[in-house]
Amino acid sequence: MLNHYKKTPLRKVLLTFLCFLFSFHLLFFCSAEVSHPIKTHIKIRVATRNDPPFSFRGVDGEWTGIAVDLWKRIAADLNLPYEFIEMSADQQILIRGLLDKKVDVVVTGMGINIELLKKLAFSYPFLTSGLGVAYRSSPISSLQAVFRFMFNPEFATVVCGMTFLTLIAGFFVWIFERKKNPHFGGSFIHGIGNAFWWAAVTMTTIGYGDKVPKTVGGRTVAMIWMFVGVVLLSFFTAWITAGVALEKVSLDIVKLKDLSQIRIATVKNSMGSSYLKKRQIRAILFDSLNEALEALKEKKVDAVLSELEQLRYVIQKEFGGELEVSEKTFVRIDYAFAFRPGEEILQLVDTWMISHLNELKISENH
């Protein structure tokens, strides 16, 4: 009897401890469930801003754009409830809202960089692009375009290269033919001159037939040169056509080395301003891209450096025919959705995006 009374309190203590442990795990599990909106179907708070073409309100007042439309598709496929929360265009406010847990994800045109990676976690990029340069359209005549192209250093380099190859072909034909073919015999000047003439005529497919190789070695060189000449001439013709067309687009195509020598404009606190600041290139700053492009139109600046996709969108919508965007881009920019580090939803989004890479058609120049 005494032993029975001694054991009873111990059993009660163990039972109480087990009940407490079970209650603690249950409480922890429930709190974990509440913290993940995916499991409890609490709406995901999606921060966005007016940032065309990535995120903006359409004519119906609904949010749309490259980033927004992609998010809608992902959310539909993964059955994720969400709501859009419009925030300031200032990127620092977006980041602060995300870190302060006022929103769960940022869906807009946010490019990944080293500084942001120290604070945030990013999804797989949905678009790869870069910085572009806008300039005024200056149409010129075809004749002007041809002359401008012919005095381009690149044109001289290509012509010299083709001339050099022609000389090599003529030289080898002369080596084989000089002693057995009167067309290429005689003095050195006469023989080598005729050989160069033959090589040029053959490459351009004119084929006068006034001078032809007769030896096996000479004809072998001739056959090789015929095929090489056709390829070279085709390349040269296509290259000239494209070059002249490009010259006709504008007299003011801006290259990287020219940015420090012109009046270059960009938007305050943008990737363009950071790029120019790092390279110690003085820039004229504007509060918005529209203001910068308007200044370009009025010839107050010579060019505008900004994110390529935004330049294309705004120019097409508001400055069509007056401004152009250079095909050359500076600095690679990867656009992605931003999350707080450790968010469960990030893994789901990444898995979806990787499985749909072919449909996303991600390209470096869009």
Score class of each variant (00 low, 15 high):
209 G>E: 03
325 V>D: 04
213 P>H: 01
66 I>G: 00
283 A>Y: 09
219 R>I: 12
357 L>S: 10
174 W>A: 05
355 S>W: 12
352 W>P: 10
312 R>I: 11
134 A>F: 08
87 M>A: 08
161 G>H: 13
141 S>M: 08
339 F>R: 02
228 V>F: 00
136 R>S: 07
85 I>G: 03
270 S>F: 00
229 G>V: 03
214 K>D: 09
169 A>W: 00
133 V>G: 02
301 V>G: 02
315 I>K: 04
51 D>C: 02
78 L>Q: 06
144 Q>Y: 01
106 V>L: 04
173 V>E: 01
100 D>K: 13
202 T>H: 00
52 P>T: 02
52 P>A: 07
138 S>C: 14
290 N>Q: 14
104 D>C: 01
228 V>Q: 02
143 L>T: 10
198 W>A: 01
350 D>H: 03
281 I>L: 10
236 F>W: 07
359 E>I: 06
252 D>E: 09
211 K>H: 10
192 I>Q: 01
145 A>L: 08
238 A>F: 09
166 T>D: 08
218 G>I: 05
188 F>G: 15
131 L>C: 01
1 M>I: 08
251 L>S: 15
236 F>R: 01
185 G>N: 03
334 D>Y: 05
213 P>Y: 03
292 A>C: 11
161 G>Y: 10
123 S>K: 04
163 T>E: 13
360 L>F: 11
187 S>E: 09
166 T>A: 12
226 M>Y: 02
82 Y>V: 07
278 K>N: 07
214 K>H: 09
248 K>N: 04
134 A>I: 07
338 A>Q: 04
12 K>T: 14
276 L>G: 10
230 V>E: 14
83 E>C: 08
144 Q>L: 07
46 V>Q: 05
199 A>K: 01
